[in-house]
Design a protein around this nucleic acid. Structure first.
Lengths: 333, 333
DNA sequence: CTGAAAGCGCTTACAG
DNA sequence: CTGAAAGCGCTTACAG
């Protein structure tokens, strides 16, 4: 027994494909088909284990009820949770989500956009990569519906949902200052993404204001070489004369490795060095030292992105929506 | 400018759809089309930004080069990493992966299977839910290609890739005994899934062998009420007379909450109570107390599952492949 | 109340 | 060397 199609059901009952299709898709209008026949069709469909072929429907209707999601790394809990929220929420509107990864590679981002378009997704939600501007620009000029999340390019007018990276980072750094830190380092990615430079700017301005700014305490990490870069940076920052007493870490992956290395050097947090992180690592709660962090409203980010995208898909609204949500500081205990 | 199809290119060049299709899909045989025309077609396709409609191709060929992945919770890093590996590996064979969630609900599992089949995926990789046997049985009788991962039903003959839950749990428990624990508790889900009962069995047998088994020290947790159940269990286990000195935690989510609560009670790990966990929480590394855990070979699980599935899809092999991989204990420092 | 027919974009035997 | 035509499974005007 192969797959059951509308045609099979129609033949079985001696009616036309049209009648079966109308009934099964719930589009049958009053008086179109007799009550009797409606019931028969429903029963037969169930009995024959009919499952609609969404590909065929999509081809015909020019719409697949599918959203493509492109994240930087699905194994990172931040993106995992974001993907989860997007999927749960999109499902409410009858959309399926196809999740793909770029691993922060713009080549892969291009590829994923192309694959997802080939699969006729109705729209895209994208966490863009470092050198992804060109691909995003092309998307804009082709009027393909999409929303950027987590990051955006300020010089390209796009839908996007991001957080207040600058303010949050500034407040976090300020909090370290208030806790008495005099030499506060920053670990940040070396990419040119706006959200990253905003985090850096928040750090820099808080320190400048306090007269504590020292560019030598900024360490730029390469994503492809995280482990080594972070370890070297921490080692250098905690060496004899330079020895910092505070650290602001700009992402959760950097934080993980950095904190590990600090402990490896047999230093105590927060006694020897105070740490503040961007993004939560659930583990912060279970360590005896409770590390403060900036927490992003992941569910809201996901929901807003879906709302904007579906609105554009279904109403072809041409204007762009740009949302900046507030990332809070965790309560420090 | 709407979407560009093969027809558009054919008209542009005054050739037939067949010729264009053959060239673009790389199926053109020696002498079928002149070199000149091949080049022209390729160039025009590029110039017009042609992107093949994979839906249409899938409809025609009865094959979509798509794998459906159904996990219990994509926001759980274990499944996030698994999804990541599956996706990366499947891509090498030209397959796209659609990831979906069940939240451990069998109703949702049914729904996801149906949605993915409607989308004409070529096969499924499934982390089955507690009461999911019926759906899995149906899949077996329908001869739809699929592989179970992480969990399986011993009474249903299916392809699956799992780990040696029994042995690993037994060894972990044994290790706690060797560390001098006399009263070792177990936190485990209350579901009837085989992998869970195997973890329990490993714990029980290790204790029985040592003459330390006490069924009152087993606490069953309900997935829908994790937080409260774990907290209550920990509170109870650490009360006056019962007070345990060891804990084996059967999953990473349970571990997180449990360890938190232990610390909340102002107890020290491992001085007051030793803990051993199934599955890694990256955070174990950054806490000052290094908690030992059982680590599953996630990349291998993913790869094996993809290998088995693609083999079944492409070669219609009828026999089932069942793989049990070895989960190691983390090195305790 | 219902059916015949066209067409979404693709591939592939078949005919020339 | 190349094209016309059928058909994958669906939906939807149109005709009766």
């Amino acid at each position: 027994m192969g797959k059951v199609s509308i045609k099979n059901i129609a033949q079985e009952l001696g009616v036309s494909n049209a009648t079966v299709s109308l009934v099964l898709s719930g589009k049958v209008k009053e008086g179109r088909v007799s009550k009797d026949m409606i019931e028969k069709i429903m029963l037969t469909a169930k009995a024959m284990h009919y499952e609609p072929n969404i590909l065929a429907r999509g081809l015909r209707m020019g719409k697949t009820q599918t959203i493509g999601l492109i994240v930087a790394d699905i194994s990172n809990p931040f993106f995992g949770q974001l993907a989860f929220q997007i999927q749960e929420y999109a499902e409410k509107f009858g959309y399926t989500v196809i999740i793909t990864n770029t691993n922060e590679s713009d080549v892969k981002m291009d590829k994923m956009i192309s694959i997802l378009k080939s699969r006729q997704v109705d729209g895209l939600i994208i966490v863009p990569t470092n050198h992804g501007e060109l691909a995003i620009k092309e998307l804009v000029t082709s009027h393909f519906p999409f929303v950027l999340v987590d990051r955006h390019f300020p010089q390209i007018p796009t839908n996007h949902v991001v957080v207040n990276n600058y303010v949050a980072s500034r407040e976090a750094t300020h909090s370290l200052i208030q806790d008495g830190c005099k030499k506060i380092a920053l670990l940040v990615y070396d990419n040119k993404l706006y959200h990253m430079s905003e985090r850096k700017r928040g750090y820099v301005e808080a320190l400048q204001e306090a007269g504590l700014y020292n560019p030598e305490l900024i360490k730029e990490i390469n994503y492809l070489n995280i482990q080594e870069d972070v370890i070297n940076s921490i080692n250098d920052l905690l060496k004899g004369d330079k020895k910092v007493d505070g650290l602001f870490s700009a992402t959760n992956t950097i934080s993980m490795i950095g904190i590990n290395q600090i402990l490896e050097l047999n230093l105590k947090i927060p006694d020897d060095i105070k740490v503040f992180c961007f993004d939560k690592n659930s583990e912060f709660d279970i360590s005896n030292f409770k590390i403060p962090y900036i927490i992003q409203p992941i569910p809201e980010i996901g929901k807003k992105a879906v709302d904007i995208l579906i609105n554009e898909i279904e109403h072809h609204s041409a204007d762009t929506t740009q949302i900046e949500l507030v990332a809070q500081m965790s309560v420090i205990r």
